[in-house]
Design a protein around this nucleic acid. Structure first.
Lengths: 155, 155
DNA sequence: TAAACTCGACAACGTGGTTGTCGAAACCGT
DNA sequence: ACGGTTTCGACAACCACGTTGTCGAGTTTA
């Protein structure tokens, strides 16, 4: 046995560092492209709102948080000009939450930037190794962990 | 070209899901072993305190947060019985922050559990693929991202 | 139609972060 | 040795993000 296994605690650190590297670079690039105020949490929330909009209660369900928390997040998104609330003509209780053109733009840019970042990893690792990394992760990650309810789960 | 590349946004999601899976399982197991109240943030902080202790200001520097924030975290760790403050005999300004035996135990258990979890991934992926996953991540992650200052960076 | 449910808003609170201020103690240069 | 600078920890005020509980209004259903 030539080398010992690395200690187990290194694995989560590497995964987190990889995630963090991508997200930090995404937001640095988003800032350069006219979206300096959007934070990682906002990106997750806007992704969950989607191009066609939702309601606050539904957004909460998608993000795995209470409707109140979702409502507060929408407040901040609205204050930044990324989302807006409009009355639902079919149900007077509801307010539809929709992304503004600015919100849509930030999602579009994010998708492009993520593609670029992945291309950089291909340059560094080779397409095969990156594809294998992705397929390995898909194999060990249960489908339930694939949710977009990242925020606040830490504390 | 048989298959197209996966979209770039999948990569951070996979990394995060992997990280989250490990952390969630760690804390589920920690809870079973007598540490139900410790949260991911606390684990990072205790890791930064280390077996020999520190001061609040130094802890803040290690975690990349203000000394005030570090002090508050210590307050909560102390309330949970994982850390304590003792006067520094050599410098009357300082209070040494030390882990209690309970705090040390949670770190020891965490290391064991992480080793077990890594072993499970070896079962699922094979030692070679996991080793390659780790080395790939080491290659793309800059050393600066390897810090333990996870908390709060999201919002 | 009456009961039950759902929506969004509001309030109070916990936790983790920030800045600013402050007094006490330590360090350092003259 | 003494006075200025730095460092430490504490306190206060504030923001972001989450929680539960309550509530009135509107919709659905039995």
């Amino acid at each position: 046995m030539p080398d010992a296994d690395p200690p187990g605690f290194e694995l989560p650190l590497l995964l987190f560092a990889g995630f963090r590297t991508l997200i930090d670079r995404l937001h640095a690039e988003l800032a350069r492209r006219g979206h300096p105020d959007v934070r990682p949490v906002h990106g997750f929330a806007m992704q969950a709102i989607g191009a066609h909009g939702t309601t606050a209660a539904d957004l909460g369900r998608r993000l795995g948080v209470s409707k109140q928390a979702a409502g507060k997040t929408v407040d901040r998104l609205a204050a930044l000009g990324y989302a807006e609330r409009v009355d639902d003509p079919g149900d007077a209780r509801r307010k539809l939450i929709r992304l503004t053109p600015r919100g849509i733009d930030s999602l579009t840019q994010s998708a492009r930037i993520f593609d670029q970042l992945r291309a950089e990893w291909v340059d560094q690792l080779g397409a095969d190794r990156l594809a294998q990394l992705e397929s390995s992760l898909r194999a060990v990650v249960p489908a339930t962990a694939f949710r977009v309810d990242a925020p606040g789960w830490f504390g």
